[in-house]
């Protein structure tokens, strides 16, 4: 069976300056029901990949090479309108910051149902029933009340639940989760991660999980790709990776990750030599790319 999502040799550059790449020949694939973690520090390009898949790259960035295959369709070969229709019906985003992702001046109900009504052509009544069902599914005790609330009346964890409900509303086959728990405190984070895992498993959703936290990756992902400078440094199965990463940069990232159980082997700064090595690899990749292009 071919993969549900394939990203093949994807490069994106600053618009008008093809040589300044923000994504450097990125390749990976995800099967139905599989979760892939994209890990890296800020500026590594991990969110950019999620945006490229969903066709919501910032206007200053354009894809200059490579292909994205979603459910058997080559996104790059499609007309803009067709592509948007396909992505809208197939994929959804769980954003990082639940406060900025929700419209502060509207109640929750239309923010979940609008997409179902406007894009998928559901009746308002069906959309409302589906929204109530979803809020129940994300373990919100009083869905009726939450539907009538404004975002500021809900806690951070509740808001994130609403966004997860909204992401899963149209039964997406692919969900891009962009640091969905970074803004939450640890106990709420645990509940939300469990919830995402539960929904993802039940609906057999393919998922791209963007995060800087290797601890989180070890809990929700089956595979991961480590990014540096918009380049995939290492791709691995999760159990193998946490048994011992292959690349020096991945090892450094793992050693920098906090582990309260093992204070001696955690929170270690990334060695300059490792940064030099991985930066060198990025430069070498660019050299090769220019000669090939």
């Amino acid at each position: 069976m071919s993969a549900f999502l394939t990203v093949d040799n994807l490069s994106a550059s600053i618009r008008g300056n093809i040589r300044q790449r923000v994504l450097r020949s990125v390749s990976f694939s995800i099967d139905t029901g599989e979760v892939l973690g994209l890990v890296g520090e800020s500026g590594a390009g991990k969110s950019m990949i999620g945006k490229a898949i969903l066709g919501i790259l910032p206007s200053a960035v354009e894809v200059v090479e490579g292909e994205i295959q979603l459910d058997g369709h080559n996104l790059m070969a499609m007309k803009q309108a067709d592509r948007r229709r396909l992505i809208g019906a197939t994929a959804a985003l769980i954003p990082q910051d639940p406060l900025t992702a929700l419209n502060p001046s509207r109640r929750i109900e239309p923010q979940i149902t609008n997409r179902l009504v406007d894009i998928l052509g559901w009746s308002k009544r069906d959309a409302r029933l589906r929204a109530l069902e979803l809020l129940d599914e994300v373990h919100i005790d009083n869905p009726e009340r939450v539907m009538g609330s404004y975002p500021h009346e809900l806690s951070g964890g509740m808001r994130q639940r609403v966004l997860i409900a909204s992401a899963f509303a149209a039964n997406p086959k692919l969900v891009v989760a962009d640091e969905p728990t970074t803004a939450l405190d640890v106990t709420v984070q645990k509940q939300i991660l469990r919830l995402i895992r539960e929904l993802q498993t039940r609906h057999e959703t393919a998922m791209v999980f963007v995060t800087h936290d290797l601890g989180v990756v070890s809990k929700v992902c089956q595979r991961l790709s480590v990014l540096y400078g918009g380049m995939v440094v290492e791709s691995s199965d999760v159990p193998a990776f946490f048994g011992g990463p292959g690349h020096a940069y991945s090892r450094a990232l793992l050693a920098a990750t906090p582990k309260y159980t093992d204070p001696e082997a955690s929170l270690l700064p990334v060695d300059e030599a490792v940064i030099a090595q991985v930066s060198g690899e990025v430069l070498a990749a660019d050299e090769g790319w220019r000669h090939g292009a």
Partner: peptide, 15 residues
């Protein structure tokens, strides 16, 4: 609080 911290370990208990 301790249990809620995701350690970089796929086999962490209570997760």
């Amino acid at each position: 609080l301790m249990d809620a911290i995701p350690l970089p370990d796929p086999n962490q208990a209570n997760w």
